[in-house]
Design a protein around this nucleic acid. Structure first.
Lengths: 90, 90
DNA sequence: AAATATTTGTACGTATGTATG
DNA sequence: GCATACATACGTACAAATATT
């Protein structure tokens, strides 16, 4: 999986979207750790600040939570503002 | 007003607290712009990322909102988790 | 307990892009 | 076009918490 440097979306949003998709499809199971900042830097070839921005988004959206010295973990519940939304309505 | 480099709180939290106090006491009135990132850098002698972190905190807490190219403005209402809290109960 | 490695937290510096006036 | 101001992104260093040896 890669990101689009030319796209309109910021890198950190694209990366957050990729990670969010992995959470949604179970690649990153609940309560389990997601890859470290360093690993995200490696995979997406970005700087640590950018990797951290992506994680920050996930945390803000309630998908994950971060514990210093341990890592970032998938939250047990992913709250949603769109209770019925799976995008298949149209 | 200064910040405490030796203190336990991060610089950006200390700065956010100072700005929040100015919002609370009317130094920065509602709907009015607060100082620019550059001005905050100057006043507190910090880097732009640190100034931005402070502003981000204010935004997250609903005290302010930022408009790209214009500045950061005091929100019209400051939501509170402590409906009765003004600290004068004792 | 000590040393080392891993991982996140804070902070600085800089460059470039985008939006407003 | 220029000046101001925020947004994104890279690079780096050191501190603090955790985990392993």
């Amino acid at each position: 999986m890669t990101v689009d440097l030319e796209g309109p979306e910021p890198l950190y949003e694209q990366i957050a979207a990729v990670l969010a998709a992995r959470i949604a499809d179970g690649t990153y199971p609940q309560r389990r750790r997601i890859p470290s900042e360093a690993a995200i830097c490696e995979e997406f070839d970005v700087s640590r600040p950018t990797a951290r921005s992506a994680i920050r988004l996930l945390n803000e959206r309630g998908l994950t939570f971060t514990v210093r010295g341990k890592g970032t973990f998938v939250a047990e519940q992913q709250p949603s503002d769109e209770p019925a939304g799976d995008g298949t309505s149209g």
